[in-house]
Amino acid sequence: MPDTAKDMLDRAMGALVGGALGDALGMPTQLLSPARIAALYGHVEDFVAPVADHPVSKGLLAGTITDDTEQALLLGRILVDSGDRFDHARWVNALLDWEREVKARGSYDLLGPSTKRAIDAINNGVPPEEAGRGGDTNGAAMRIAPVGIMMPLAPLDAFVAKVAETCRATHNTSIAIASAAAVAAAVSRGVAGSDWRAASDSAVAAAGQGAALGHWVTGGDIAARIVWAQELVRGRTVKDAIRLIVDLVGTGVASQESVPAAFAVLEVAAGDPWQAAVISANLGGDTDTIGAIAAGMAGACAAFSRLPQERISRLVGIDIGQVRALASDLVAARATKMKSGKDAAA
């Protein structure tokens, strides 16, 4: 395998496994306030088990991934199996099968509100193309990394159109598509070899285009809020940055809070994936999703080989061999798209 392909695979693995690290570290702190997190766990710097009365994570082992990682890997496999044209029906059926499995495990409350509403609507006979028209939360952004791995960033309109296509069943709104486009663009730029600063610039451009797609819903402009959130915390200590993110940016499931928050975390962590996961876990609110997004973007820019391998070995609920196989397939699909683009331009 050529060195460039090896590097792309390393960065693709960084995106997927980095996201899993952020997800698992934030699992026991999600939905809690920063004060409650500090009282229960101190400053979270490693995997911990959730308290026995945790509202959604009770009973899970320390280091366990959640729906953030599971849906990302599921979407990645559907992307590979779909070929050039995203198989919308296969994706919906895969989500429905996954939902049944999650219910059987007793973890349905871990699903995000937009995905839960859309799946319930599809189960009740609503056409998939209509089910996602109210989805404005962060579920699309949390699982979008495989699109960033598979798709070259240029041409940007085609890239954002692919993001929107994968959002349709659950998050077919302007704000959710803009958010997912931003995260996917950061991952794609990282897989291509750029650092986290360049990835942030690409994210802003993609968010601007994504905001014109899907059903319009009210909410702050994602591109502008990403820029503002990163400027807000630039040069701040971690303690001050956490306070600013919590008090001003927000850490809820709303796309206009959690996605800019993840980019602010990326700024404070200076692109370090594990630090991005640690900062996210201590924010309170939707910590697992913010961590999955921030550490996934950082992982794409840093690469798997620079992630903390000892902590990866303690992840629960993920098969790294299967992740590597998926990452390899996504990178191969990206290489094919890049070659066909060059051939078309020749």
Rank of each mutant, 00 (worst) to 15 (best):
N123I: 08
A302D: 00
V160F: 08
D286I: 05
D329P: 09
L110D: 00
P273S: 14
V183F: 03
M142L: 11
R90C: 06
D247E: 05
L61T: 12
S340W: 10
A277Y: 00
V56P: 03
K162Y: 02
G134M: 07
Q209R: 13
A302Y: 00
R197S: 11
P273V: 10
I320W: 11
V204K: 02
V204L: 08
I122M: 15
L213A: 05
L283C: 01
G321A: 05
I119N: 00
S174E: 01
F47H: 03
R314I: 03
A104K: 10
H43P: 12
M338R: 10
V191Q: 02
K239Y: 06
A295S: 05
D221L: 07
T173K: 13
G83N: 09
L110M: 07
A186W: 01
A176M: 13
F263H: 11
D23G: 11
V323W: 14
V323G: 13
L75E: 07
P28W: 12
G299W: 01
R243A: 14
L79N: 11
V187D: 03
A5Q: 11
S107W: 08
P50A: 07
P146H: 04
P55G: 06
A39F: 09
Q30C: 09
Q309E: 14
A298T: 01
Q209N: 07
I242Q: 08
L74M: 12
A169R: 04
M27Q: 10
N172D: 13
D23P: 11
I37C: 06
R77P: 00
A52N: 05
A254I: 01
R105K: 11
L73D: 12
G42F: 06
A211D: 07
A333W: 01
R314C: 06
F304A: 15
I242L: 09
F159Q: 01
V48S: 07
M13G: 04
L111C: 09
D97V: 03
D201H: 07
I242C: 05
M142H: 03
D157C: 01
S280Y: 02
D286L: 02
L232I: 09
S280C: 03
G214I: 05
V204C: 08
I293S: 00
A180C: 09
L232T: 10
P113A: 10
I37D: 03
A5T: 10
V246H: 08
D329R: 14
L111V: 11
N138T: 10
I37H: 06
A254L: 05
A262H: 04
G341I: 10
S258N: 10
G252I: 08
E267Q: 15
D68Y: 05
R36V: 14
L9R: 11
V238H: 03
S313V: 13
A333Q: 03
R314N: 06
L96A: 12
A294P: 01
L25T: 12
A206Q: 07
R311P: 05
S328I: 06
V160Q: 04
R143D: 05
A158R: 09
I144Q: 12
S255C: 13
P308H: 04
Q309A: 14
A298Q: 01
G106S: 08
L32A: 09
M27V: 10
R100A: 13
